[in-house]
Design a protein around this nucleic acid. Structure first.
Lengths: 354, 354
DNA sequence: CTGAAAGCGCTAACAG
DNA sequence: CTGTTAGCGCTTTCAG
């Protein structure tokens, strides 16, 4: 474990190049307004001394930090069982890196950590925040708003106040769910069940709504509440088989849930998709592809969601509207951009299970 | 996206409390040396104004940042398919949070990002670095050493120079592998194969060595190289079945690999564990428990590894030796602490597959 | 186009 | 025990 050594300062570079600190500063920050002979001499001095600007000093005067906080408020261990979170982070990281911003990760383990996060955000350490995994009665959004930090949410928040709606990025959960269920209907299935996610998250509610859009008049016993985990999927599937032995299709709220359902179906000797067709949600590759049989599922571009969140935050900071940022967002075309929310499209990936 | 507002300064608090800035500073930083009537008045002013110290200003003078970088150098997508990484992060985050340190996440997508990471680390933005996923010929460690930042590695690095060895935290990969293979032997298996991980990582090499410790004289065709992924596990298992149809046990380098092997075994009508026993490594719950059949595997305490890394870094910074930090590390007792490396024990978790 | 000078908000001697 | 005084390293008017 090496000792940190003291780094050269602007002053040192200036001395070496025979110019003033101001000139060095100009060159280091874009270089406009400095004539060529000088600029080159400065660059050389920077190189020779291995000068790296001291971010603390810079922030002190600019009030910018080139850093963004990513807040993951997931008390349950679910985030850690699901590559979802990692993919999202990867997208965020890519975008942030491209704009020379750092990613400060704030993980919370329950309410006790909320105050800490709020304090940090309020402390003006970062230029903005990206916030995930909000649940219905979560006090965090309120705290964050009070902190006065530009924020983009991952997933549609479920609250709304008088002011302008929160900026968020979401997948078209409802539309994706509809597509999945319609596919099942197209397969000739009539007893189509839905295993929900945790219903205090909007993603779960939206998927349930999508299911109902198509199956509005279905037997209510075909809907069973669950929690986005394989274990929950198993329990739900057992109950389903018990309540409705004639079920011939299952739309699970996510791939992990589908995995649990698949296992119980196998246990009970039901063949997939012959006896019961199964569709998941997410298309988390290692899960969906490795399932037995490989899972038909609703794909959402998780990495792109992360990237877009970061882009919105960065652009918004520059004074543009989310819409403008959105217009410039390459890659997946947003399905919808109502108010301050951006909703990415989903696509049905057909594999063997349905 | 709210505008950031300007926060109250020390000065403001001082004015409100009718004291000097120095006094407020003292109260804010521990409060020793300030008599009670005053201290209380200051605390009140802090409260009323909602004062939060400006970290940039503080760092500028203290040269400390209370921030640690976590560098994940994994060009492949593997990290994102494996909850390993998330668990490690969780452990790190917990420990860092407990000591009021922030976690700055540096994800790299290949060599192009190395320079950026090196620059950041050299820039003195953080007090230390936690570095993961090193491969054999990785230039990153060299760059990091040059940056002169206190560093703790996750997993035993494969290089060594003249100086004091690098500080690292690792699992007892070799011992764990031995235990797994011995278990297989105890089951009466004789044709025990090993599907390796990526052999440019020490964890994979150590597991292979452990296998050889027990099976030194075995048929060399029983060892097939792979890459820690389910797909790789499938390919390896096919080759194994082809080369040695009489194989009766498989020790896979990790759970994901075992998953692939399981699938191919099933495909070929081999029953697990009756015909072929299978053992994995990691005990990543959603993988191992949900496998078909549930996987017997070598468990490593991933979260604890993360926590320990952070602890070592924090303690090392305070001038203690890693050994001292280690002695204070609660929870899992280290199996071994040679030089600057800390090796955590592993345990065999028996489920249905072997 | 370049340099001089004035802080950004905070801590850390040093006096009193 | 408390206040005064210097800066930390950088950007940014403002002159020249």
């Amino acid at each position: 474990m090496t000792e940190a050594v003291s780094r050269p300062t602007l002053e040192a570079v200036a001395a070496r190049a025979g110019v003033s600190r101001a000139t060095v500063s100009r060159v280091v920050n874009g270089g406009d307004g400095v004539r060529e002979p000088l600029a080159e001499r400065v660059r050389q001095a920077v190189e020779e001394l291995g000068y790296v600007p001291n971010q603390a000093a810079r922030s002190l005067v600019t009030k910018r930090h080139d850093a963004v906080a990513v807040v993951i408020a997931e008390p349950e261990a679910r985030v850690f069982a699901d590559p979802f979170f990692a993919l999202q982070l990867r997208g965020i990281s890519k975008e942030l890196t491209a704009h020379d911003n750092q990613l400060v990760l704030l993980l919370t383990e329950g309410r006790a950590d909320h105050a800490r996060v709020a304090r940090y955000l309020a402390g003006g350490h970062v230029d903005g925040a990206l916030v995930f995994s909000l649940h219905l009665d979560d006090p965090l959004p309120g705290l964050i708003r009070k902190a006065g930090v530009p924020t983009v949410f991952g997933g549609r928040p479920d609250w709304s106040d008088g002011g302008p709606g929160p900026v968020y990025v979401d997948s078209d959960n409802r539309g994706g769910a509809r597509e999945a269920v319609r596919h099942l209907v197209g397969l000739g299935r009539t007893r189509i069940a839905h295993i929900t996610g945790v219903l205090d998250q909007t993603s779960a509610v939206d998927r349930l709504d999508g299911y109902r859009d198509v199956m509005g008049d279905a037997d209510p016993r075909l809907v069973v509440e669950s929690d986005f985990t394989p274990g929950g999927g198993e329990r739900a599937m057992r109950e389903l088989l018990d309540r409705c032995p004639d079920v011939d299709a299952v739309f699970a709220a996510n791939d992990l849930t589908a995995l649990g359902a698949l296992r119980v179906l196998r246990e009970h000797g039901r063949r997939v998709p012959d006896d019961v067709a199964v569709i998941g949600f997410d298309d988390v590759l290692p899960v969906a592809e490795q399932a037995e049989p490989p899972l038909t599922t609703v794909r959402q571009d998780i990495e792109e969601m992360g990237r877009l969140m970061a882009r919105l935050l960065l652009r918004g900071r520059a004074g543009e509207t989310p819409g403008a940022a959105l217009a410039q967002a390459s890659g997946a075309a947003p399905a919808e951009a109502s108010g301050a929310g951006v909703v990415l499209p989903t696509t049905l990936i057909r594999r063997a299970s349905a």
